[in-house]
Simulated scan of single mutants.
Amino acid sequence: MRIAVQQEPFDLGAETAVFAESCSNMGAVVTFTGIVRDLPGVPLQAMEIEHYPGMTEASIREIAQQAVARWSLGQVLVIHRHGRLAPGELIMMVGTAAPHRKDAFEAAEFLMDYLKSRAPFWKREITAKGAHWVEAKDEDEAALDRW
Rank of each mutant, 00 (worst) to 15 (best):
L85P: 09
F121C: 06
K123P: 11
F110T: 02
F110Q: 05
E89C: 03
H100R: 14
R101P: 12
V78H: 01
L85K: 14
V76E: 13
H100K: 11
P99S: 09
A104W: 03
A128Y: 06
H100L: 05
H82K: 08
L111E: 09
A98T: 08
R84A: 12
V76A: 06
A107V: 07
S117A: 15
G130N: 07
L111F: 05
A119S: 08
L115T: 10
E89S: 05
L90A: 15
S117Q: 12
A119W: 03
R118M: 06
I91C: 06
D113T: 14
L115N: 05
K102H: 11
K123A: 12
E109H: 09
K123L: 10
F110H: 12
P87N: 11
A98K: 09
I79R: 14
R124K: 14
W122V: 07
A131K: 02
W122T: 07
M92Y: 12
R118F: 01
E125K: 06
M93Y: 11
G130Y: 11
L85G: 06
W122H: 11
I79A: 07
A108D: 00
H100F: 03
H82W: 13
D113R: 15
V76C: 07
A108G: 05
F105A: 01
G130H: 09
G83P: 02
M93V: 12
A128K: 14
W122R: 14
A98R: 07
H80F: 02
I79L: 15
T96C: 14
L77N: 04
A86N: 13
P99A: 13
A98I: 07
V78A: 02
E125N: 15
